[in-house]
Computed example of a mutant assay.
Amino acid sequence: MTTLTIATLLIPLLILAALALIALRNGEAAEARYPPNGTFTTVDGVRLHHVETLPPGGGGDAPTLVFVHGASGNLRDTRLAFEEALADRFRLVFIDRPGHGHSDRGPADAHRPAVQARLIGGLLDALGVRRAIAVGHSWGGSVVAQLALLRPDIVEGLVFIAPATHPWPGGVDWYYDVAAAPVFGPLFSYTVAPVVAGQVAPQAIGTVFAPEAAPDAYADAIGLDLLLRPATFHANARDVALLKGEVAAAVADYPRIGQPAVVITGDEDTVVYPDIHSAGLVRDLPRARMVELRGAGHMPHHTRRARVVSEIEVLAAQVGAASGATTGETEKGRP
């Protein structure tokens, strides 16, 4: 073997090793800058990170609001959008989905919304939540749908925000497919991808919020660099790349979701297709209604916060009234 041949083989390996080291160090820096800000609870061997807030007086009989974030995010996103607006009236639970933020990834099939919903249901049991409204953004909408199917004993209402819940034409961005691929995917996720993604992240934020603007210092507020840790990047890629097959199989079960639901979408969302996902939910769920926000994109919980909060409050009042009526009927029927 010639010196030239050896160099030809070694140079790519050295480059990959350097990229892996950069990604590792960047990930360690991200964890130091954005440490866990909540509590850990272990469910079926998976340690889940969550933040819980209680209003003055404990929230009374109001249902607990449970927030499930979308792809490429963590609980800091939904907390940024909703905590200040709702914490004085409701018990709030913000959850890092498995593999995101500071939650463990868990089993090999943790990319499945149903598996994530099962773990979240177990977390709610551990927290003593007996009545909940589940709020899901984007990818989290698919989890919320599964949570409604798996745990109707807890979930009494649903809020879908720019949801991704139905199969769509075409695929996803190429780098998700590459990162999710067997064998080569982990190599890509632990070397090239995090470093490159860090360079394009600002542009990606603009695309997700378009045609509206992101909040000031949004990337820092949500700890976006946590996404660029290799293990998190790989988990996120698998979530995104494998979602289409999951929702295609789930659609047939949606008519069994009997809880009242509100589906909130921007009419200029270019990340998911409102006419497929949001319209599909309203078609398939027996008690769903649509709220379409003109001129809004994929992040209305930030850009149209007041309206989204108002819709959550309306649904909470509806759920509360239904629960009160049921309790009254039960009391009347007692001997």
Rank of each mutant, 00 (worst) to 15 (best):
V247S: 07
A62L: 11
A296I: 03
L123F: 02
R79Y: 10
A322M: 04
G128A: 06
R33V: 02
V159Q: 08
L187G: 09
S142R: 01
Q203K: 14
A134R: 12
G171Y: 06
S278L: 07
G140P: 00
L158I: 11
A252M: 00
A250C: 06
K244C: 01
A325F: 09
A217C: 05
T42I: 10
T207F: 13
T303L: 04
G99R: 01
A261G: 05
P167K: 04
A134Y: 10
P215Y: 04
A231K: 15
P202F: 08
A29K: 15
T330L: 14
P12W: 13
L119T: 04
G101E: 06
R118P: 05
G258S: 13
H49T: 11
R33G: 03
E156M: 05
P260H: 01
N26W: 08
P107K: 10
D177P: 04
R304H: 15
R283D: 12
V46W: 00
A316Y: 08
G185R: 10
W139K: 02
L158N: 01
D104M: 11
G297R: 00
F94R: 03
D275P: 02
G280C: 03
G101A: 01
D267F: 09
Q259G: 05
L48F: 11
T330H: 14
Y218A: 09
F90S: 00
G101C: 12
D284F: 05
L92R: 10
R105E: 12
E83M: 13
A241R: 00
R105C: 06
V51C: 07
G70I: 06
V159I: 15
G128D: 03
F40W: 07
D275F: 10
R238F: 08
A180C: 12
F40K: 08
D220T: 14
W168D: 10
D267W: 09
D216V: 12
V115S: 06
G57C: 07
V143M: 06
L65H: 10
H277K: 03
V51Y: 07
P167Y: 10
T165P: 07
P230S: 13
I6A: 15
H50T: 11
T165Y: 08
H49M: 09
P286V: 07
G223E: 02
A32S: 15
F209G: 00
A231Y: 13
A235P: 09
W168A: 07
I257K: 03
G297Y: 01
I222K: 02
T39P: 03
A214G: 07
I15R: 11
D125R: 14
T5Q: 14
L147V: 05
V46G: 01
H69K: 06
Q203E: 14
E292V: 15
D96N: 04
D173F: 14
A145F: 07
